[in-house]
Amino acid sequence: MTTASRRALLLALVALPAAARADAALEAAMREAVGPAEPEEGGMALRLPALAENGAQVPLTVTVDSPMTAEQHVVSIHLFATRNPTPGVASFHLSPALARAEVQTRIRLAEDQQVVALAVLSDGRVLRATAETRVAVGGCLG
């Protein structure tokens, strides 16, 4: 975590306890998925609708720029919802048998929020991509 993001988290802890708890859960889930590596922006596209009519079924496509060879491929892709009751969405484990590093799925979103994708590459690098989605009707039955 950078000094700036640590300071932001600290401020959030003072101002908004519930939001800070959610941020802490998100941070912990991301660390568990990808370890201590600092994610790099770029090299990956995360596509969601800008406005999801139904938060219970939101289509998502994640694509990583990768040749998917034995030497150079995507090992895993992890999806997180920043404002759901719990942050975990799914983790995908890929292999060089895949023609490309792309997965399409459908997720649930409780409210307007940012979705985060982290990809772990075979060389140990971690990529990060985000997408903002507005949700007309929340998908967590809350």
Partner: peptide
């Protein structure tokens, strides 16, 4: 041989749907 796997958590929608590409 395992070529693709998914760990599904709370944020995965009902009736899990996945698309992927194999060579």
């Amino acid at each position: 041989e395992t070529i693709f796997a998914a760990d599904l958590r709370n944020g995965t929608a009902a009736n899990p749907y996945h698309v992927f590409f194999v060579r």
